[in-house]
Design a protein around this nucleic acid. Structure first.
Lengths: 82, 82
DNA sequence: TTGTAGACTATGGTCGACG
DNA sequence: GCGTCGACCATAGTCTACA
Protein backbone atom coordinates (compact mmCIF):
# COMPACT_ATOMS: atom_id res chain seq x y z
CA UNK A 1 0.00 0.00 0.00
CA UNK A 2 0.93 3.64 -0.51
CA UNK A 3 1.67 4.82 -4.02
CA UNK A 4 5.13 6.26 -4.61
CA UNK A 5 6.13 8.63 -7.37
CA UNK A 6 9.83 9.17 -6.66
CA UNK A 7 11.41 7.94 -9.87
CA UNK A 8 8.96 9.64 -12.19
CA UNK A 9 9.02 12.89 -10.27
CA UNK A 10 12.80 13.09 -10.29
CA UNK A 11 13.03 12.27 -13.98
CA UNK A 12 10.37 14.83 -14.90
CA UNK A 13 11.87 17.50 -12.68
CA UNK A 14 15.32 17.10 -14.17
CA UNK A 15 13.85 17.05 -17.66
CA UNK A 16 12.55 20.53 -16.91
CA UNK A 17 15.93 21.57 -15.52
CA UNK A 18 14.47 22.46 -12.14
CA UNK A 19 16.02 22.18 -8.69
CA UNK A 20 13.96 20.70 -5.87
CA UNK A 21 13.94 24.16 -4.38
CA UNK A 22 12.58 25.77 -7.51
CA UNK A 23 9.94 23.09 -8.00
CA UNK A 24 8.93 23.40 -4.35
CA UNK A 25 8.61 27.15 -4.59
CA UNK A 26 6.61 27.12 -7.82
CA UNK A 27 4.23 24.45 -6.60
CA UNK A 28 3.81 26.02 -3.18
CA UNK A 29 5.23 22.99 -1.40
CA UNK A 30 8.21 22.51 0.88
CA UNK A 31 11.65 21.64 -0.48
CA UNK A 32 12.31 18.88 2.02
CA UNK A 33 8.96 17.36 1.17
CA UNK A 34 9.82 17.23 -2.54
CA UNK A 35 12.94 15.37 -1.46
CA UNK A 36 10.84 12.98 0.59
CA UNK A 37 8.66 12.25 -2.42
CA UNK A 38 11.64 11.61 -4.67
CA UNK A 39 13.16 9.24 -2.15
CA UNK A 40 9.81 7.44 -1.84
CA UNK A 41 9.53 8.31 1.83
CA UNK A 42 6.19 10.01 1.49
CA UNK A 43 3.15 9.39 -0.67
CA UNK A 44 1.32 12.41 -2.11
CA UNK A 45 -2.30 13.48 -1.91
CA UNK A 46 -4.20 13.95 -5.17
CA UNK A 47 -3.94 17.64 -4.49
CA UNK A 48 -0.16 17.52 -4.47
CA UNK A 49 -0.12 15.59 -7.75
CA UNK A 50 -2.11 18.38 -9.38
CA UNK A 51 0.16 21.11 -8.00
CA UNK A 52 3.34 19.40 -9.10
CA UNK A 53 1.98 18.46 -12.52
CA UNK A 54 1.10 22.05 -13.18
CA UNK A 55 4.67 23.19 -12.60
CA UNK A 56 6.03 20.31 -14.68
CA UNK A 57 3.64 21.36 -17.44
CA UNK A 58 2.18 17.90 -17.75
CA UNK A 59 -1.40 16.76 -17.26
CA UNK A 60 -1.97 15.18 -13.86
CA UNK A 61 -3.57 12.19 -15.55
CA UNK A 62 -0.50 11.79 -17.70
CA UNK A 63 1.61 11.85 -14.56
CA UNK A 64 -0.64 9.26 -12.92
CA UNK A 65 -0.50 7.15 -16.05
CA UNK A 66 3.27 6.93 -15.76
CA UNK A 67 2.94 5.97 -12.13
CA UNK A 68 0.43 3.25 -12.98
CA UNK A 69 2.57 1.85 -15.78
CA UNK A 70 5.57 1.70 -13.49
CA UNK A 71 3.51 -0.20 -10.95
CA UNK A 72 2.22 -2.58 -13.60
CA UNK A 73 5.81 -3.38 -14.52
CA UNK A 74 6.41 -4.65 -11.00
CA UNK A 75 3.15 -6.54 -11.01
CA UNK A 76 3.81 -8.38 -14.27
CA UNK A 77 7.34 -9.48 -13.37
CA UNK A 78 6.32 -10.67 -9.93
CA UNK A 79 2.88 -11.44 -8.55
CA UNK A 80 2.02 -8.65 -6.19
CA UNK A 81 -1.68 -8.33 -6.96
CA UNK A 82 -2.80 -6.97 -3.58
CA UNK B 1 -7.06 24.22 -3.02
CA UNK B 2 -7.92 20.60 -2.40
CA UNK B 3 -9.08 18.50 -5.30
CA UNK B 4 -12.57 17.04 -4.97
CA UNK B 5 -13.89 13.99 -6.77
CA UNK B 6 -17.43 13.76 -5.44
CA UNK B 7 -19.48 14.05 -8.62
CA UNK B 8 -17.33 11.71 -10.67
CA UNK B 9 -17.07 9.15 -7.92
CA UNK B 10 -20.81 9.02 -7.37
CA UNK B 11 -21.56 8.77 -11.07
CA UNK B 12 -19.01 6.01 -11.57
CA UNK B 13 -20.14 4.10 -8.51
CA UNK B 14 -23.79 4.14 -9.58
CA UNK B 15 -22.80 3.16 -13.11
CA UNK B 16 -21.34 0.01 -11.58
CA UNK B 17 -24.48 -0.51 -9.51
CA UNK B 18 -22.54 -0.44 -6.25
CA UNK B 19 -23.62 0.85 -2.85
CA UNK B 20 -21.22 3.01 -0.85
CA UNK B 21 -20.97 0.12 1.54
CA UNK B 22 -20.00 -2.34 -1.17
CA UNK B 23 -17.49 0.03 -2.74
CA UNK B 24 -15.99 0.74 0.66
CA UNK B 25 -15.65 -2.93 1.46
CA UNK B 26 -14.11 -3.86 -1.87
CA UNK B 27 -11.63 -1.00 -1.80
CA UNK B 28 -10.71 -1.55 1.84
CA UNK B 29 -11.94 1.90 2.85
CA UNK B 30 -14.56 3.10 5.30
CA UNK B 31 -18.18 3.60 4.24
CA UNK B 32 -18.52 6.99 5.92
CA UNK B 33 -15.34 8.13 4.20
CA UNK B 34 -16.72 7.22 0.77
CA UNK B 35 -19.69 9.38 1.69
CA UNK B 36 -17.37 12.20 2.67
CA UNK B 37 -15.64 11.99 -0.70
CA UNK B 38 -18.92 12.04 -2.61
CA UNK B 39 -20.11 15.07 -0.67
CA UNK B 40 -16.78 16.80 -1.35
CA UNK B 41 -15.98 17.02 2.33
CA UNK B 42 -12.69 15.22 2.02
CA UNK B 43 -10.01 15.12 -0.63
CA UNK B 44 -8.33 11.76 -1.34
CA UNK B 45 -4.71 10.69 -1.34
CA UNK B 46 -3.26 9.29 -4.57
CA UNK B 47 -3.35 5.95 -2.84
CA UNK B 48 -7.09 6.16 -2.34
CA UNK B 49 -7.62 7.07 -6.00
CA UNK B 50 -5.81 3.88 -7.03
CA UNK B 51 -7.82 1.71 -4.64
CA UNK B 52 -11.17 3.11 -5.74
CA UNK B 53 -10.30 3.02 -9.44
CA UNK B 54 -9.46 -0.64 -9.17
CA UNK B 55 -12.89 -1.48 -7.82
CA UNK B 56 -14.58 0.71 -10.41
CA UNK B 57 -12.55 -1.13 -13.07
CA UNK B 58 -11.19 2.07 -14.54
CA UNK B 59 -7.61 3.23 -14.87
CA UNK B 60 -6.60 5.70 -12.16
CA UNK B 61 -5.31 8.05 -14.84
CA UNK B 62 -8.68 7.90 -16.57
CA UNK B 63 -10.32 8.77 -13.28
CA UNK B 64 -7.92 11.67 -12.77
CA UNK B 65 -8.52 12.82 -16.30
CA UNK B 66 -12.23 13.17 -15.59
CA UNK B 67 -11.42 15.12 -12.45
CA UNK B 68 -9.12 17.44 -14.37
CA UNK B 69 -11.65 18.01 -17.14
CA UNK B 70 -14.31 18.86 -14.60
CA UNK B 71 -11.97 21.38 -13.01
CA UNK B 72 -11.10 22.89 -16.38
CA UNK B 73 -14.80 23.43 -16.97
CA UNK B 74 -14.97 25.68 -13.91
CA UNK B 75 -11.78 27.45 -14.93
CA UNK B 76 -12.96 28.29 -18.43
CA UNK B 77 -16.34 29.64 -17.39
CA UNK B 78 -14.90 31.72 -14.58
CA UNK B 79 -11.32 32.85 -14.06
CA UNK B 80 -9.99 30.90 -11.12
CA UNK B 81 -6.46 30.30 -12.35
CA UNK B 82 -4.83 30.82 -8.96
C1' DT C 1 21.94 21.61 -4.39
C1' DT C 2 20.28 17.73 -1.86
C1' DG C 3 19.73 14.31 2.33
C1' DT C 4 18.31 13.96 6.67
C1' DA C 5 16.32 14.66 11.20
C1' DG C 6 13.14 16.35 14.68
C1' DA C 7 9.25 18.84 16.16
C1' DC C 8 5.25 20.46 14.74
C1' DT C 9 0.35 21.31 12.28
C1' DA C 10 -3.13 19.89 9.01
C1' DT C 11 -5.82 16.63 6.94
C1' DG C 12 -6.66 11.90 5.32
C1' DG C 13 -8.93 7.89 6.91
C1' DT C 14 -11.17 4.69 10.78
C1' DC C 15 -14.79 3.47 13.82
C1' DG C 16 -19.29 3.50 16.40
C1' DA C 17 -23.72 5.38 16.67
C1' DC C 18 -28.09 7.38 15.36
C1' DG C 19 -31.75 9.24 12.29
C1' DG D 1 -28.65 2.46 1.92
C1' DC D 2 -27.05 7.11 3.06
C1' DG D 3 -25.91 11.73 5.81
C1' DT D 4 -23.79 13.07 9.69
C1' DC D 5 -21.28 13.73 13.92
C1' DG D 6 -17.58 13.19 17.25
C1' DA D 7 -13.56 11.02 18.80
C1' DC D 8 -9.77 9.12 17.37
C1' DC D 9 -5.27 7.50 14.84
C1' DA D 10 -2.07 7.69 10.83
C1' DT D 11 0.29 10.11 7.62
C1' DA D 12 0.78 14.22 4.55
C1' DG D 13 3.11 18.45 4.56
C1' DT D 14 5.79 22.63 7.02
C1' DC D 15 9.80 24.66 8.97
C1' DT D 16 14.56 25.08 10.92
C1' DA D 17 18.97 23.61 10.77
C1' DC D 18 23.28 21.16 9.67
C1' DA D 19 26.32 18.26 6.88
Amino acid sequence: MAIYIGGILRRRRKAKGLSQEKLAFESGLDRSYIGDLERNEKSPSLDTVFKISKVLEIKPDEFVKEVRETLEDYNTSEDNSD
